[in-house]
């Protein structure tokens, strides 16, 4: 479904991604794991058109995605749940969700999608008229995911959904990722929380200093000696 081929990304003069390549197939949950500064978020930003490529290409169903301006990526069914939520904090919960359904196709189904999101996250329904900035961290993350779902995506990209959340909330969030997948949405997830991520994903890529150093099915990676030592702390 999504193919990232040999991409280089720079911030100014600093090269962040070095010839990065990976693939996400239809219906999969794929994880990109790695330490701080490995380039995980940058990879998602590149797919979303927020970070320009210096080299390489990104193909979505054989169509070049990297030539599409950022605001049109969502029309191709790719939604981004950005790091640290990035909500519109002076808008209400409901307004934030509506902002997620601006594209054609999603707009017509707005009421239906709202109902669906409120069904998945009853907390958001309770707080529909509250300002997004006044929600708790976990609720904000739910809102960010809900906003992503409002666009009826084929591919939903999560950037560190567990960041700064209590362990019990993290569990809920990962449960939501599982639900999203059951609705037939392909998932690309970026995480530092390697243990839990490897449990919900099908395949994973390990990113180090902007390069992929390991890849494979999660059940193999979990038992991999290097992964155990470097990321699982066993």
């Amino acid at each position: 479904m999504l193919q990232v081929k040999d991409i280089d990304v720079f911030y100014g003069d600093v090269q962040v991604l070095w010839g990065l390549s990976f693939e996400v197939h239809q219906g999969e949950v794929v994880a990109l794991v790695g330490a701080n500064g490995a380039g995980k978020s940058t990879t998602l930003r590149a797919i979303s058109g927020l970070a320009p490529l210096r080299r390489g290409e990104i193909m979505l169903r054989q169509q070049p995605l990297h030539q599409t301006p950022g605001y049109r990526i969502i029309e191709h069914g790719v939604a981004h749940v950005p790091e640290a939520r990035r909500l519109f904090s002076d808008m209400t919960v409901r307004e934030n969700l509506i902002m997620g359904s601006l594209k054609k196709g999603a707009r017509e189904q707005r009421e239906q999608s709202l109902e669906q999101v409120f069904h998945t996250f009853p907390r958001l329904a309770e707080r529909a008229r509250q300002l997004a900035g006044t929600l708790s961290g976990g609720e904000q993350q739910m809102l960010a995911i809900g906003r992503g779902l409002m666009s009826k995506p084929k591919l939903l990209m999560f950037d560190e959904p567990s960041l700064g959340l209590a362990p019990i909330v993290v569990k809920q969030i990962f449960e939501v990722v599982r639900q999203v997948r059951e609705q037939g949405v392909t998932v690309l997830i970026v995480e530092q929380n390697v243990t839990q991520t490897l449990q919900i994903a099908d395949r994973a890529y390990v990113l180090e200093n902007g390069r992929i150093t390991l890849e494979g099915p999660c059940r193999e990676l979990i038992t991999n000696d290097y992964v155990k030592k470097a990321y699982l702390g066993i």
Binding site: S48, G49, L50, G70, Y71, R72, I73, I74, E75, A79, H80, P82, R86, L87, F88, S89, D90, M91, M99, G100, L102, K103, R147, S151
Partner: peptide, 10 residues
């Protein structure tokens, strides 16, 4: 509120 998020919303 958030230019990048707005861009990502389309």
């Amino acid at each position: 509120e958030d230019q990048d998020a707005a861009e990502a919303m389309g």
